[in-house]
C-alpha cells in the first residue's frame, strides 16, 4: 500500500441490536483520492460511513485515521480531528439562518474563515440571513457541505449528496468535489452512476453488508461496470 493512506478500515462488523448489517468490511482511502461506494438501498453504505465517523459502534474491526485509531472515540471528537460525515437526510438546522449554521460549523475548530466556503458556493453569500428551513434542496446541500468544510477536514464522507437534486446542481457539485479532492480525500456514497464514473478514482461495491468488489481500473469505471451492483 502507498504511504499516503489516510483512512484504513479493517474487518469491520456492525450490528443494530440483533441484526447484523456489516460483515467484515475493509476499505482503504488515500489522501486526496475520491472513492465511491455503490450498492442498493439497505446494503449498509450509510452504516459504513456512520461507523467510521463514530455514530455507530462496531462490534469488531479497526478504523485508522492517519495514525489514530478511531474506534471508541466520540463522534464529535472525530469530526474535530478532521473527519467529517455529511449525512444523507439534507437536514440543515431549519430554525437557524444560513449564517448561524455556518457559525456552528466554525464553533468546534474556531475556524471562521468562510471564504473557503463561499469560494465553492458563492450563492450562499446572498442567502446569509435567510432561515435555512426556507432553502431549496440544492442550497441545503451546499450549506451542509459548506459548513463541513470549516476546520479543514482531511476526509469527507458524503452520503448520497445528489439524491433528489436538479441536474444543474449535480453538475456543480461534481466540480466542487473535484476541486475539494485537492485538499481532502472524499468517500462518496452515490446512486448516480454518471457522477460516480466522472469523478471516482476507485469504486467499492457494497452488497448485503459486504464489499463484493473493488474497481480501480479507470476504464472499467468509465464504462459503468458498477451498474450491475445497483
Amino acid at each position: 500500500m502507498p504511504t499516503d493512506e489516510i483512512l484504513a478500515v479493517e474487518g469491520l462488523n456492525v450490528a443494530y441490536g440483533e441484526s447484523k448489517v456489516l460483515f467484515d468490511v475493509s476499505i482503504h482511502i488515500n489522501a486526496n483520492e475520491i472513492v465511491s461506494c455503490v450498492g442498493r438501498n439497505g446494503a449498509g453504505k450509510s452504516t459504513l460511513l456512520r461507523t467510521i465517523s463514530g455514530f455507530v459502534k462496531p462490534t469488531s474491526g479497526t478504523v485508522m485515521f492517519a495514525d489514530t485509531s478511531l474506534v471508541g472515540i466520540k463522534c464529535y471528537d472525530i469530526a474535530r480531528m478532521g473527519l467529517k460525515y455529511i449525512p444523507q437526510d439534507k437536514k440543515v438546522f431549519s430554525d437557524l439562518t444560513v449564517r448561524e449554521n455556518l457559525e456552528l460549523g466554525s464553533y468546534a475548530t474556531q475556524d471562521y474563515n468562510w471564504d473557503k466556503v463561499t469560494e465553492y458556493f458563492p450563492k450562499l453569500t446572498l442567502l446569509m440571513e435567510r432561515k435555512a428551513g426556507y432553502l431549496s434542496g440544492g442550497e441545503r446541500q451546499m450549506l451542509m457541505i459548506g459548513r463541513a468544510l470549516l476546520g479543514d477536514p482531511k476526509v469527507l464522507l458524503v452520503d448520497e449528496p445528489t439524491e433528489g437534486l436538479a441536474p444543474s446542481i449535480v453538475a456543480q457539485l461534481q466540480n466542487v468535489f473535484l476541486e475539494l479532492s485537492k485538499k481532502a480525500a472524499l468517500v462518496i456514497v452515490e446512486q448516480n452512476l454518471s457522477l460516480v464514473s466522472a469523478i471516482s478514482q476507485r469504486v467499492y461495491a457494497v452488497k448485503e453488508g459486504r464489499v463484493v468488489h473493488e474497481i480501480s481500473d479507470e476504464g472499467e469505471i468509465k464504462n459503468n461496470v458498477c451498474e450491475k451492483y445497483l
Binding site: 465517523s53 455514530f55 466520540k74 463522534c75 464529535y76 471528537d77 469530526a79 474535530r80 467529517k84 460525515y85 455529511i86 449525512p87 437536514k91 440543515v92 438546522f93 431549519s94 430554525d95 437557524l96 448561524e100 449554521n101 457559525e103 456552528l104 460549523g105 464553533y107 468546534a108 475548530t109 459548513r147 463541513a148 476546520g151
Partner: peptide
C-alpha cells in the same frame, strides 16, 4: 450566543450538531 445557537440546533437534530464537532 453561540452556545444558545448550538442548543437551538440541538433541539432540531442532536446528531448533526455532533457531526460538526460540537460536544453535545
Amino acid at each position: 450566543t453561540i452556545t444558545g445557537k448550538a442548543i437551538r440546533a440541538g433541539i432540531e437534530n442532536v446528531e448533526h450538531v455532533e457531526g460538526l464537532g460540537i460536544n453535545v
